[in-house]
Design a protein around this nucleic acid. Structure first.
Lengths: 143, 143
DNA sequence: TTTCATTTCGGAATCATTCCAGTTTGTAAA
DNA sequence: TTTACAAACTGGAATGATTCCGAAATGAAA
């Protein structure tokens, strides 16, 4: 189920979010550059080409809004600006230490570095596994 | 093999890095707060208690130096400042969405959210798997 | 004790991101 | 099709973690 511009726009309506020219341009930028896993800056520049009137503030606000509503997924890094992923299916992000490109590697598939290298040509040097959620204490605590 | 102050200091010497009062204080702060997975600010405040003459710049430079030399591991987040982990063994970081605490969950063990909840009481809502390394193209390219 | 590369320092600079307060605009209802 | 208003947009200022800078201080090898 490849996510298209239309999918995203109808999702916007479902959520009761307004469809504006700026958002159309941003959606375009996201879909057309899906394999780049674009960051706010790239989305901003691409969106500008379509619709003149898009500000960087809006791009940030919109990407945040979209992420919070589950339309896209925010990939957070440290030394890099955040990147956004239109593909919400379970997959591993393979991140190149040198060029910074982000490749998708779908799950279920072996997560053994050796298998990953054989299938994708990507050599793993470092692994990060993060599970976000709620700790025991916070689950007890109200609010 | 629990990493102690002594372990870290001898590692410093091995790498040809100088042992200064500031670094001693920083090492102390790291080891004594290991379970907090402390960030630069906490390390700075703790280190200040031991040695008056430590600047924030130095803390940053030192944590970077230590990470690059494999003495500690840098955990990078987005909305939070970086955190540092003295434990270099393979483990999963369980990060609470509410209080921000970081819990360790050792590998090998089941990575099934259900099993994690049963063993640690931590409820997983979101998973992030990142494999860092080198992509096919960058492997070919010299330098 | 001398030497010098390394380390330290405070302050300025950077950079992604958020905040703010005023203005504009989809869109649902009249 | 107008009207009304919450939602969305804007540029610029503010934030906060981190890095950069050039100068001064200092471990540690000779």
């Amino acid at each position: 189920m490849k996510k298209t511009k239309e999918t995203l726009i109808s999702q916007l309506r479902e959520k009761g979010l307004k469809v504006t020219p700026q958002r159309m341009a941003i959606v375009d930028a996201l879909v057309e550059n899906r394999y780049e896993h674009p960051g706010a800056t790239l989305v901003f520049n691409e969106a500008r080409k379509k619709a003149k009137h898009v500000s960087l503030s809006t791009v940030y606000a919109t990407l945040k809004e979209f992420s919070e509503n589950g339309l896209i997924r925010q990939l957070e890094f440290d030394r890099m600006e955040n990147r956004y992923d239109v593909d919400l299916s379970d997959h591993v992000n393979l991140i190149c230490n040198r060029c910074g490109k982000i490749f998708d590697y779908s799950i279920p598939a072996s997560l053994e570095p050796r298998d990953i290298a054989r299938k994708s040509g990507f050599v793993v040097t470092d692994t990060r596994l993060e599970f976000h959620g709620y700790c025991r204490d916070c689950l007890k605590r109200p609010d």
